[in-house]
Structures are given as C-alpha cells and as structure tokens.
Amino acid sequence: MTAIVRALRPGDPDDAEGFARVRRAALPFMLASAESVAFDAAHAHPESHYRQLAAFEEGELVGTAQVGIAHDSPEPGVGYANVYVHPDRQRRGAGALIVRTAEEHLARAGATTVYSWVLDAPANRAFAERHGYRPSRSAHFLRLDLGAGALPPLQEPPAGVELVPGTAFEDDPRPLFALDAEVTADEPSDVDTEFTDYAHWLAQTWNHPLLSRELTTVALVDGRPAAFSAARTDGSNRYGTVMTGTARAHRGRGLAKLAKNDSLHRARAAGLTEAFTGNDTGNGPMLAINKWFGYEVCATEVRYVRELG
C-alpha cells in the first residue's frame, strides 16, 4: 500500500486529532491532544524551522514526525526528527518515507546532525540502523498508579521554605523562567540547551495548553523560587511531570522531592489516576526520587544520531 507524506495542517481539526491519535497509540506514556499539536506548530520559534509531518494511507493518518533545528543549543546545525508510526501500520513504508522527507527538510534548514528518539525494541532499533543512525544515550518512561498506589505522606516544609502552586506566578512568571533555564542547562543530554529568550518561553512553555499551573508546585526559599515540579494534564485522568529540578545553590536539601510530592498529592485529589514522567538513564538522582514515589519503568527510548552528508 502506497503512503504519502505531507506537512500537517494544524489548523485542520482532522489533521491535528489524527496526529495526536497516532502519538498516543505509539507513545501512550506521553500526553498529546489536538489542541497541543496545533499550539506547538503555531508557537514554534522561527529559527527552529519546526515542521510536523504526517504520513497517510488511503486518506488515513498513520505516521507522524516532529522535525526541527535545536535553535536553543549553542552548537549550530543540530537537528531532530522524532518519527512515530501507528503500531498497527508499521513495516508498510510510511516510516521510511517520513524519515527521508524529514532529512531533506533539515538539510535545507542547515542541519548537519540529526538526533532521533527510538523505542528500545529490536524492530525499532533495526529500522533506525538501516537508515544510517547509530545509538547514543537512553531514557526511561515511568508510570505511577495514582488511583491505587500509596504516595509518601506530605511533609511539612523546613523553616524558610514555602510550597506554592504555579498560579502564584501568573502576574510575573520571569522567576520561574530563570529557574527553568538553570535546571534545563544541567539536564543530561547529547545536546546542550540554553534558555535565553523569555518571550518565547512565555509563549511556548508557560502558555502551553497542557501545562497545569494549578498542579505545578514551586518551592520558595526566603520567598524566591528554588525548586519546582512542572505538571501537565490532557483533560483525561492522566498527569505528567515534564521537569522537576532545583537551583544549584539549593541542591541536596530534598526540595525537588518536596515539590513533586505536593504536586502528586494535589493531582490525586483532583481525580487523576495515572502519572507519567521521563528520565535520562544517567540521571541517577531523579530516578532514585521517582523510585521513592513508586514509579516503575514502562518503556525505554534510545537516542540515535546520524551525520547528514
């Protein structure tokens, strides 16, 4: 069966919902909605050359890719192409066509290197290696049963520490931007990231439709943000933490664990029953924290890389 690939029309409700449907089927441990798909396209940084690709078979959307340049990396020419085909439509040519289309787009945008997350399964890894990609670092997806599992009890913050929801920063989110930038810069990764564009962070991160400011928790030390756990929800019973971390000057005090525990308790009180997160396999401290909460590894991805000729 012949597949065709074209750029997604995020303003088309059928396109956006089809894209989100495939992502949920391929990665059930990541949150996606038609609204978030359209939002990501509308608020992409111009220097990212961001494009969503969709593969169709007989009019049905069966494959997706998020493609772009890592514009916030200090290293030039770094591109990414994360390709996912619906599990029921694999090994029919759609994935190979998306990869070729993605690489052509990235080459035109000036990429010299392409990174791609690949599920750690024999067929997926073989697919990447057939297309000239070599494995690099890996990351785990983790799941916690919020409905039936027992959470650690809430703890009283130590003297000088206060826990507040993300809504406390709605008038001025800039202190959270500074904290997010510092924490992100220290995340284990193949590609360094530097947040310097506050306006873009405000548009794409703070105003993202999946971000739950109500369930995000920030730990204040002497009134200033020192640690946080950023939460997302998709309108169902699912909750995800997309970043949890502590400012360098306050590490080793358990503040990230304190913030995440508060967020998880409020998520459960709000009726959410599944919690997801992800960690680089080399991020021992965060993996230990999530194990303490009761998270279990539910899948692993390997980051593959290819140099474009």
Rank of each mutant, 00 (worst) to 15 (best):
T2R: 06
A3T: 08
I4W: 11
R6C: 04
P13V: 01
E17H: 09
G18V: 06
R21F: 02
A26N: 06
L27H: 03
P28M: 12
F29R: 07
L31T: 00
S33H: 06
E35V: 09
V37A: 02
V37Y: 00
V37Q: 00
A41Y: 09
A42P: 01
A42C: 01
P46F: 11
R51T: 09
R51K: 08
Q52V: 01
L53F: 03
F56L: 08
L61G: 05
G63M: 12
G63L: 12
A65Y: 02
A65C: 02
I69M: 11
E75V: 03
P76L: 07
G77A: 05
V85I: 13
Q90P: 02
R91L: 04
A94R: 03
A94V: 03
G95Y: 06
A102D: 05
E103I: 02
E104S: 03
E104W: 00
A111D: 06
V114M: 10
V114H: 07
R125C: 08
F127M: 13
F127Y: 11
E129P: 10
H131D: 08
S136A: 14
R137K: 09
R143Y: 10
R143M: 14
A150V: 14
A150K: 15
L151P: 01
P153R: 10
P157K: 15
P157I: 15
P158C: 13
T167G: 09
A168R: 00
F169H: 10
D171A: 15
D171Y: 14
D172P: 06
R174K: 15
F177I: 08
L179K: 04
D180P: 01
E182Y: 01
E182S: 11
E187Q: 05
F195P: 02
D197T: 11
L202R: 07
L202E: 09
L202Q: 09
Q204S: 13
T205I: 09
H208L: 05
L211T: 13
E214M: 11
T217M: 12
T217D: 07
V218Y: 05
L220P: 02
P225G: 05
A226I: 00
A227R: 00
S229N: 01
D234W: 15
R238Y: 00
M243G: 13
T244C: 12
T246M: 00
R248E: 10
R248I: 09
A249N: 14
H250Y: 15
G254M: 06
L255P: 03
A259D: 11
S263Q: 03
H265Q: 13
H265Y: 15
H265I: 14
A267M: 03
A270R: 14
A275L: 12
A275R: 04
T277Y: 07
D280Y: 00
D280T: 01
D280C: 02
G284P: 08
G284A: 13
A288F: 04
W292Y: 11
G294S: 04
V297N: 04
A299R: 06
V302E: 10
Y304D: 06
G309V: 02
